[in-house]
């Protein structure tokens, strides 16, 4: 069973079944640990409220981190790359056509048509 499901990649192999078995075992352990916890936690009162150093909890929309703020550091660090590449996507049809024909001319040179 396990042998026929092994993906041969020429130099190596990969068997999803072993991975899944490992996954299931990890899940069983996680479940066992979870079982050891409190069976019936309180659903109301102070226990479920977030504790923010005694400050009142802000509104839901105020604590949500929107997607635009993620990876700010990444784009900031690669500023040199992004300031060059993003403006290429200018949205102007003429530029798109130029790139297309330019690449075609370049490959013509590469293949050896235009010397």
């Amino acid at each position: 069973m396990a042998a026929i499901m092994t993906l041969q990649t020429g130099t190596g192999f990969w068997n999803p079944i072993i991975w899944i078995i490992a996954f299931v075992i990890a899940f069983v352990f996680a479940y066992l640990i979870w079982m050891l916890g409190e069976k019936d936690p309180k659903k109301t009162g102070d226990l479920i409220r977030p504790y923010l150093s005694g400050n009142p909890e802000p509104a839901k929309e105020a604590v949500h981190v929107p997607g635009g703020n993620l990876y700010w550091g990444f784009t900031e660090a690669l500023q040199g790359y992004y300031t060059r590449v993003v403006p290429l996507h200018s949205g102007i049809l003429t530029d798109y056509l130029l790139w297309f024909l330019g690449v075609m001319a370049f490959v013509l040179v590469l293949v050896g048509v235009i010397v």
Binding site: V86, H89, S90, G91, I92, T94
Partner: peptide, 10 residues
């Protein structure tokens, strides 16, 4: 005009 019709970019 091609350089006005460019709301999609970036």
């Amino acid at each position: 005009e091609a350089d006005v019709v460019r709301r999609l970019r970036g």
